[in-house]
Design a protein around this nucleic acid. Structure first.
Lengths: 193, 193
DNA sequence: CGTCTATTTGAATGTACTCAAAAGCGGTGG
DNA sequence: CCACCGCTTTTGAGTACATTCAAATAGACG
């Protein structure tokens, strides 16, 4: 059951009894999206935070020149969404679409607020999730400031070895902040060694 | 009183009664550090998260070439610390020092855990703080990917107009991810318009 | 199998860096 | 109060990392 995965995941952070777990599950909407379909279209309001049970998504922007820049990937056991848009319920900056056929469990802002009221332990759960995400982002910012493109690439494949297999190089380049051509050159150079 | 500032700040997010507020205040250690002194030395374990009542700090790394890269500034009403080091109580990656004479209120990890137990509302408080920090970081990552140095500079002075006044250009450059020389060129070019 | 997209390769270009030196600024002590 | 010292900022020339544009090749999907 897809519901098992999310409860198991949550139990790594907080302890839920059956009533709490079932209440939480009752708030979730399952959704499937196919590869290349949108979870969040440009300028759309983000109505749900989504927990991924299967598949892979990217959150990205498109700049004035039409180039895509990937802010995050999300795979199984990760939460995704445009948090700013979700919190403010105003149109966001990010676009989210599927890089693989994907299955999600979604929770709306109202239901999440209710959940915080009824089961305050979830405040803790999402605080812990956010702490981890904050630390990871801070490290990424530091790397973007400190590392060359080649160093960032080497760090990426070391940190997420399984993820690189699932992604087109183009997507990796858009995440690292370089052009696909330059990533291709970096890989050629590394392969010659 | 410096204690007023932090309670006022917290009351913007959660409602504390006097008992809760006083309990929280009892867990805080005041500290002052002078300009150029360290809050966190290289490879030191981060024992406290710190709320700034006066002054300005920077969290940064030094790369192999000896260059400094600033991950965040922190001024009045902000929390700072090396969250990874604080959570794991292992040596961290960041160095924190004061850019101005600074006054802080510090809380230890043990006391913070106690606080979460005794006053669970603080789970909510720090979740909300982290949400905001997460959103801000995500936007910064996107800008580092999408914008030129000039665009990043213009965005920075627009977003933190009062902060630029307090910082040496060198520090701004280390935050934007460029050399001081190049920031100087950007400013000259902008001034000519 | 054919079409469309991703990847590779190369040449020319641009953005930002390095190194070096001069000028400016702020704090401190005489 | 001025002079000096150290650090920051400015300026310029040469360089390196990464991009752009274009074309060829490879690969994925219907």
């Amino acid at each position: 059951m897809f519901e098992d995965a999310i409860i198991k995941n949550i139990n790594q952070y907080i302890q839920l009894n059956d009533i709490e777990a079932n209440y939480f599950l009752s708030l979730l909407y399952p959704k499937t999206i196919k590869r290349k379909e949108y979870l969040l279209r440009p300028n759309e309001i983000c109505k749900y935070e989504s927990f991924i049970t299967k598949g892979c998504l990217r959150s990205y922007t498109i700049d004035d020149a039409g180039l895509e820049h990937i802010v995050m990937f999300a795979v199984e056991e990760w939460w995704t969404g445009d948090l700013y848009s979700f919190l403010t319920q105003t149109p966001g900056n990010f676009i989210i679409d599927a890089l693989e056929d994907t299955e999600l469990l979604q929770i709306s802002k109202d239901d999440l607020e209710k959940l915080y009221e009824c089961v305050p332990k979830f405040e803790r759960f999402f605080r812990l999730i956010l702490q981890n995400a904050f630390v990871a982002q801070q490290q990424r910012i530091n790397q973007n400031l400190s590392f060359t493109a080649e160093e960032r690439y080497l760090h990426f494949i070391k940190k997420y070895p399984q993820l690189e297999q699932r992604l087109a190089q183009k997507q990796v380049a858009a995440y690292l902040g370089i052009t696909p051509e330059f990533l291709s050159m970096i890989r050629r150079k590394l392969a010659r060694k």
